[in-house]
Write a protein that binds this DNA or RNA. Structure first.
Lengths: 118, 118
DNA sequence: TCCTTAGTTCAAAAGTTATTGAACAATTGG
DNA sequence: CCAATTGTTCAATAACTTTTGAACTAAGGA
């Protein structure tokens, strides 16, 4: 079971911008960037909306080529497609993430960090 | 007669991204960037849509803080708000313009350059 | 096997955005 | 003043997007 993703060369600038032009999705991307390297599953984003609604927004991000989703058991592990985005649109992702980082108006995800046993 | 523009600090990242996430508006911004310094009037963009439709898209760009429109006679002279955008979202406009410059799928504006008399 | 967890799909409803044409306003040139 | 030029506004429509709940699938654990 694998989910459909566009190839790097199919990623479209207007579609990426339109997809990022939604506060929920921008918050998802900001959070992914803040945990870059760590694959996160969908339930990590439940602060931002209902399960159904997140499924919708995460699908938009994936279909636009902004994120990658890997199916592992019953989970989808979500990561930013930084390499492909940087290759296609140099500097874009970094400037968006930096700007989003300053944005108090964006919804945030609570600090439910997984505690490591001592 | 002056048109309403947001202050620099009112410019919102998701709104700017959403506004740029439209091929017509992205083409307008690309063209403005290619003629930076030169104020252009609305009729310069007629290749991209009807007069009414351009009025709509140009208002979106202005209300988002992406462009500035100055009323001069019966014309509106449109410019990019580069200074404000760069201050608020460093690097964003440049990366969008660079990416849009490569994009064959975006609508283009014909080379009807005003000919200088010899 | 049965239950739980994780997430999707579907259809409906609500909301938003884009496009159009007709009518309008303001300025400029003759 | 009259006509042309430049662009806006309005209302209608079409098209898309977002949100929701109920029903569903698929994997994993007891």
């Amino acid at each position: 079971m694998t989910l459909p993703h566009p190839n790097a060369d199919q990623i479209s600038l207007p579609i990426v911008l339109a997809v990022l032009g939604d506060p929920t999705r921008l918050a998802i991307v900001r959070y992914l960037a803040s945990k870059e390297g760590v694959p996160l599953n969908c339930s990590r984003f439940l602060d931002l909306g209902s399960k159904t609604n997140l499924s919708y927004h995460l699908a938009k991000l994936r279909e636009a080529g902004v994120t990658r989703a890997e199916v592992v058991g019953t989970s989808r592990l979500i990561t930013l497609r930084r390499d492909d985005l940087d290759a296609r649109f140099p500097g874009l992702l970094d400037s968006v993430i930096a700007a989003a980082g300053e944005d108090k108006a964006l919804p945030a995800i609570g600090g439910h960090d997984v505690e490591m046993p001592a």
